[in-house]
Design a protein around this nucleic acid. Sequence first.
DNA 1: TAAGATTGAGAAGTCAATCTTT
DNA 2: AAAGATTGACTTCTCAATCTTA
Lengths: 144, 144
Amino acid sequence: VGCDLEPWPTFLRAYSAALRAIEADVRRRGAVPLSWYDVLLEINASDGRRLRMQDVAARVVLSRTRVSRLVDEMVAAGLVRKDHDDGDRRAVWAAITDAGREALRQTAPVYLDGIERHFLAYLDEPERAYVRAALAKIVDAHDG
Amino acid sequence: VGCDLEPWPTFLRAYSAALRAIEADVRRRGAVPLSWYDVLLEINASDGRRLRMQDVAARVVLSRTRVSRLVDEMVAAGLVRKDHDDGDRRAVWAAITDAGREALRQTAPVYLDGIERHFLAYLDEPERAYVRAALAKIVDAHDG
DNA sequence: TAAGATTGAGAAGTCAATCTTT
DNA sequence: AAAGATTGACTTCTCAATCTTA
């Protein structure tokens, strides 16, 4: 038929296939899990290399509850530090430690390689740009 | 920069945003969960409206273990029946029941509406076709 | 009361081990 | 021994309820 109803199932399958392959690679190569990597990346990219808990949750695709537990594990592993805000004592800042930045340095190439091999490899340059722009409209609509 | 490295984060965010919105809609409207819907859909589309357990798992994006538990819950809910194969007594067929087909009829419009409103609405017809074709290459590469 | 964050209970999903039949 | 399926123990993730400060 001419009418294309089916990008959705393809989208779900592509997500599952690529993510599983990348995570399997990462586990095999002994790097920190994707969720930890994402948290470190977002904190490291923020002003003062720190981020409030709820802002971590907003940037990574996880609930606040999950982030609360994840950050506690990362504190126990020494990759992140929790500081109370001076002005508003309800707020907690998650700050990356030196060990965290080192973990980020070691993990980044493993992920970039996985993304390249299991996702980008199947898209040429125009496709990458086109797909990114199309999906960005969906993202923007949902958090706008 | 001219080089577009970033369809991947956009892809992850689009997946999360669209799926969460669709599932919230479906829950609000009292339909069966997406995992049940997918299982019913695949069984119903198969020869004889039945499918072996491992083939269910291959078609939906879940492990065999998960499918085993899911189908047991659906049997308890009366939507699916499990039959042993006559020839090979190791194999189990999951067959859709009349109640299952009725659930499928009631759930389908809710899902199609969610997919339309939270995903397709942001893509015009050429974009739908282009994105589907691009992502299909990823899917094919991973299960080929 | 509201906002920021955490906790308890449990759903959803997986791997490795197991049971049964081939 | 290998294939089909299930089970046990576990990780991941979420919702609703809670605690604390504003």
